[in-house]
């Protein structure tokens, strides 16, 4: 029985707020809806949604194993580095590139987890350091003319095969959604994660290897983020650098608004909604900062609503 955090009605309303506002705007001015007729944009939605939902699931794993400050910093570094590496690896044939990209993303995730574990205090310093590493990676790669998209030439396109008629992106998301709960409930590592999520101090006292578990979680999250990166490369866009950062933030938002560990389908749904809202906002030519600010407000509201309450110490002798 994994811990399941079900969003309250207020949290669900908050999650639906951006979409509601956009629908309201279109209702007030039907002319705004004309860009939605763009078939290309609509076709992109499944891929974008799967990409964002996978990233959100990866974020959820990291969040479950550590603190907020720690997770966001570590994840930002992982996601950005992953996006860079996957882009570079597109210069290779598709299959080796995909395998190497996933492996590299897992290793990067594990390394960032190890760094985060060795710098556990203070958490804000760890976060700042991880973000600095991410920014340095972006700057370094940009200076070196990588990824190819940054220098103006389009990167190779990775054609991912579908599964039984289902396109690759939804199939990958479905696979993760089915596999993740099974791994959480039915494996040693999954049970350790549940214990860590329930009470890290008690988990340590019960003999669970907390540090190893956290590093493994980062590696697993890196793998899922790498899968999301592979999906993203099926539709390369010239703004891959900023896209990786924005996606990371959106993924954190979807993870929070979706309900956290145990609510995988909720996260996937909110990820889809956020991707759709982002797509529609882009079609409506809304300034990106407005969308980012709106989502940030929603995340803050959700964090405030789900803040831990004080409880009486009941386990003292």
């Amino acid at each position: 029985m994994p811990e399941r955090v079900v969003p309250s009605w207020l949290q669900l309303l908050l999650a639906m707020l951006p979409g509601s506002l956009l629908v309201g705007a279109v209702w007030l001015d039907p002319a705004l809806a004309s860009p939605l007729a763009d078939g290309h944009a609509v076709a992109r939605l499944p891929l974008d949604a799967a990409h964002l939902a996978l990233l959100a699931l990866a974020v959820t794993l990291v969040l479950a194993g550590g603190g907020w400050e720690l997770a966001t910093g570590a994840y930002a570094a992982t996601a950005v580095s992953k996006a860079m590496i996957v882009q570079e690896l597109l210069l290779l044939p598709a299959l080796p590139a995909a395998a190497a990209g996933l492996f590299a993303a897992a290793v990067l995730g594990g390394l960032s987890g190890a760094l985060a574990e060795s710098l556990r205090r203070p958490a804000w310093l760890t976060s700042a350091l991880m973000l600095a590493v991410a920014l340095a990676a972006i700057a370094g790669l940009a200076a070196a003319g990588l990824p190819p998209a940054a220098s103006g030439s389009a990167p190779a396109r990775l054609d991912l095969p579908g599964l039984a008629g289902i396109p690759a992106a939804p199939a990958a998301l479905l696979g993760v959604l089915v596999t993740l709960p099974l791994l959480l409930r039915g494996t040693v590592m999954g049970n350790r994660l549940l214990a860590l999520r329930a009470d890290p101090r008690r988990a340590r006292d019960l003999g669970i290897p907390v540090t190893t578990t956290r590093i493994s979680l980062h590696a697993a999250a890196g793998s899922i983020a790498g899968l999301a990166g592979l999906l993203a490369t099926a539709q390369p866009s010239p703004d891959v650098v900023t896209g990786a950062v924005t996606d990371s933030l959106l993924a954190v938002a979807a993870a929070v608004l979706g309900g956290g560990l145990g609510a995988h389908f909720g996260i996937a749904c909110v990820g889809t909604v956020v991707a759709a809202v982002t797509l529609v906002a882009a079609q409506l030519l809304l300034p990106p900062w407005l969308l980012a600010a709106g989502i940030a407000l929603l995340v803050l509201a959700q964090l405030w609503l789900s803040r831990p309450r004080r409880v009486a110490a009941a386990d003292v002798r």
């Binding site: 494996t187 040693v188 049970n191 549940l194 214990a195 008690r202 669970i208 493994s216």
Partner: peptide, 25 residues
């Protein structure tokens, strides 16, 4: 461990928990 079935508190840390992370539990 709060909120989790008691068997998890009894098993984790023990012999079953000393296997590889992806081993079934």
């Amino acid at each position: 461990l709060p909120g989790l079935p008691v068997w998890r508190s009894l098993v984790l840390g023990g012999a079953l928990d000393r296997r590889p992370g992806l081993a079934p539990l």
